[in-house]
Computed example of a mutant assay.
Amino acid sequence: MRVTAALLVACLVVLSGCLGGLGSGELLQSGKQSTTPTTTDTESNVSAAFVTDNRTAVTLEVANSPDERARGLMFRQSMPQNHGMVFVFEEAQSQSFWMKNTKMPLDIIFIAPNGTVINVEHADPQPNASDSELRSYRSDAPAKYVVEMKQGFANRTGIKPGTKFVFDGDRPSVEN
């Protein structure tokens, strides 16, 4: 019985390490600050694409609850190519993000409800900045979705205002 319990504990430790990386950029408007790294549920990934002259497929972690949106990609050291996070909001509205506790530079892509890219911001970490010194990155119009990718993604793939963004399957919805 002791061997079975020890084996079960060892399996749980290994499985918990496989569930994902640590969270990034934090939403200004949420009013919440999360400084505790948390694992990401890989089952909440969605497939999507940016459509320019070509179709660029991406895999996105979904941040659709207040806590997930506040945590974002905080503390994350790296991400695979064409992998990022989509922030999902109930209503399209002006969105504002900052890079609190974000370790890697990001492209922040603001997207209208109809899937059109509104604007792209190239955000850099500010490791020693106080909250009042952190730069904010804003949508130029009401956005329902915001996608964060490794900085350079938008330039490499030609994503700019007017580019179409589509989900492969159902659009993720907001959780309360």
Results as ranks from 00 to 15, higher is better:
residue 51 V to M: 09
residue 63 A to Y: 02
residue 56 T to Y: 10
residue 55 R to H: 04
residue 36 T to L: 06
residue 12 L to Y: 09
residue 50 F to W: 06
residue 70 A to E: 00
residue 30 S to V: 02
residue 49 A to F: 02
residue 7 L to T: 13
residue 49 A to K: 03
residue 12 L to E: 09
residue 52 T to Y: 05
residue 41 D to F: 11
residue 18 C to I: 12
residue 31 G to P: 05
residue 39 T to C: 06
residue 11 C to N: 12
residue 72 G to R: 00
residue 13 V to K: 07
residue 38 T to V: 06
residue 61 E to W: 09
residue 38 T to H: 04
residue 63 A to E: 03
residue 58 V to L: 03
residue 35 T to Q: 09
residue 20 G to P: 03
residue 32 K to Y: 08
residue 19 L to C: 10
residue 15 L to F: 13
residue 25 G to L: 14
residue 75 F to Y: 10
residue 52 T to Q: 08
residue 28 L to N: 10
residue 60 L to Q: 03
residue 12 L to K: 05
residue 7 L to C: 14
residue 73 L to M: 05
residue 74 M to V: 02
residue 45 N to R: 08
residue 43 E to H: 10
residue 61 E to N: 15
residue 11 C to I: 14
residue 46 V to W: 00
residue 53 D to G: 08
residue 9 V to L: 15
residue 64 N to L: 04
residue 17 G to S: 11
residue 62 V to F: 04
residue 62 V to P: 00
residue 63 A to V: 02
residue 58 V to E: 03
residue 25 G to T: 13
residue 78 S to T: 15
residue 46 V to A: 00
residue 26 E to T: 12
residue 72 G to V: 03
residue 44 S to L: 06
residue 33 Q to K: 15
residue 45 N to A: 05
residue 36 T to W: 05
residue 41 D to A: 14
residue 9 V to Y: 13
residue 73 L to T: 01
residue 61 E to R: 11
residue 57 A to Y: 10
residue 43 E to Q: 11
residue 35 T to D: 13
residue 37 P to N: 06
residue 39 T to I: 07
residue 61 E to T: 10
residue 19 L to I: 12
residue 33 Q to F: 12
residue 41 D to R: 13
residue 8 L to R: 10
residue 71 R to C: 00
residue 77 Q to R: 15
residue 9 V to K: 10
residue 33 Q to S: 13
residue 63 A to K: 05
residue 33 Q to G: 12
residue 13 V to E: 06
residue 20 G to D: 05
residue 61 E to M: 12
residue 32 K to F: 08
residue 74 M to G: 08
residue 47 S to Y: 02
residue 55 R to T: 13
residue 29 Q to A: 14
residue 40 T to W: 04
residue 71 R to D: 07
residue 16 S to I: 12
residue 56 T to V: 14
residue 53 D to C: 01
residue 37 P to I: 08
residue 33 Q to A: 14
residue 16 S to C: 13
residue 12 L to T: 04
residue 49 A to M: 01
residue 23 G to K: 00
residue 36 T to A: 07
residue 53 D to H: 02
residue 70 A to V: 03
residue 23 G to S: 11
residue 73 L to K: 01
residue 24 S to W: 06
residue 65 S to K: 02
residue 36 T to P: 00
residue 39 T to M: 09
residue 26 E to I: 07
residue 28 L to M: 12
residue 51 V to K: 02
residue 66 P to N: 09
residue 42 T to D: 15
residue 60 L to C: 00
residue 76 R to T: 07
residue 74 M to C: 05
residue 76 R to F: 05
residue 56 T to S: 14
residue 41 D to Q: 13
residue 38 T to P: 00
residue 58 V to C: 01
residue 50 F to A: 03
residue 17 G to I: 10
residue 41 D to W: 11
residue 8 L to M: 13
residue 37 P to C: 06
residue 9 V to P: 09
residue 40 T to C: 07
residue 66 P to H: 07
residue 25 G to N: 15
residue 40 T to I: 14
residue 60 L to W: 01
residue 76 R to S: 10
residue 41 D to I: 07
residue 25 G to E: 13
residue 19 L to P: 00
residue 51 V to E: 02
residue 18 C to D: 08
residue 11 C to A: 15
residue 35 T to R: 10
residue 61 E to F: 12
residue 64 N to P: 04
residue 50 F to K: 00
residue 54 N to A: 11
residue 44 S to M: 04
residue 65 S to P: 01
residue 32 K to A: 11
residue 73 L to N: 04
residue 50 F to D: 01
residue 43 E to T: 15
residue 43 E to N: 11
